[in-house]
């Protein structure tokens, strides 16, 4: 069965239409990359999938693991296995990282009818995943993202993913602003999470990340539509030629009325 099926998705933010008819199918085990120039709607697509309420869907439908995603609240989507690594993770002073992660994991376990984990049961899991991302144990007790460097924030997002083990992970520009060492660690963490049961959507502006996370499919988003899809080689072509040619091409073939 398809893990994610997006049909003719239109979405707007504050009255401006950003997504203008997206179709995308993702099967378990696949890694899809969504690339595109600034303002093409990449992040909007990610936010819609994570069910952010200020992004309004005006047409189309999304099936997530056979269920109607658009009727779910953000927390329900998360409990069903949706995960978005934020482009700009939020700093929340006063909420400890470990406490937050345990609350999240327990919310999901409760949703699935499993027993909640106490702090002692949770600790070994947390330590194991910290190691995977080469993160210091002091991350456990620090406030959520507060005072973290850009790289630490992104690693913390992947740490959350590793603990919550989603069915579908959306990485929204997880590579942006990272130096090469941080990028390698993040990519390594992501690759360790690849499995036949899990799919990923890697949203990125630059091709660089895709040297480390090799996608099965690459889609190019321009002005709210997927204008081209291909394999990993498409990303290399974009890296070489930039987005200009594809934007020009898209403009020529776009329906005049849209």
């Amino acid at each position: 069965m398809d893990l994610l099926e997006i049909r003719n998705l239109h979405a707007e933010v504050g009255g401006n239409e950003i997504l203008k008819g997206i179709d995308l199918t993702v099967h378990p085990g696949e890694v899809h990359s969504i690339m595109g120039p600034n303002g093409s709607g990449k992040s909007t697509l990610a936010q819609v999938l994570a069910r952010r309420e200020s992004y309004q869907v005006t047409a189309g439908e999304i099936l997530f693991d056979g269920k109607d995603l658009l009727s779910m609240k953000p927390e329900e989507a998360a409990c069903e296995g949706m995960f978005m690594a934020f482009q700009y993770p939020i700093e929340i002073p006063g909420i400890g990282n470990a406490h937050f992660l345990r609350s999240a994991l327990n919310a999901m376990r409760k949703y699935r009818g499993l027993d909640e984990l106490d702090a002692i049961d949770f600790l070994p899991l947390f330590r194991e995943k910290l190691k995977l991302l080469d993160m210091d144990e002091r991350f456990m007790n620090r406030s959520l993202n507060e005072g973290f460097s850009g790289g630490e924030k992104k690693r913390n997002e992947i740490l959350q993913m590793a603990i919550l083990e989603p069915k579908l992970a959306i990485l929204d520009e997880t590579d942006s602003g990272l130096d090469i060492d941080a990028l390698r660690i993040v990519a390594q963490g992501v690759n360790a999470m690849r499995s036949p049961n899990r799919a990923m959507i890697v949203v990125t502006h630059y091709q660089r990340l895709l040297n480390y996370i090799i996608p099965d499919f690459v889609h190019v988003l321009v002005d709210g539509r997927i204008v081209r899809s291909g394999g990993a080689e498409l990303a290399l072509e974009l890296e070489e030629k930039g987005y200009g040619w594809i934007e020009t091409e898209a403009r020529q073939t776009a329906p005049a009325s849209a």
Partner: peptide, 19 residues
């Protein structure tokens, strides 16, 4: 951010107030 990690709105609000 909290809700996207599976924490329901009520608990998320409570966590933020507690913080």
């Amino acid at each position: 951010y909290l809700r996207s990690r599976g924490i329901d709105e009520l608990q998320a609000r409570n966590l933020l107030l507690q913080a």
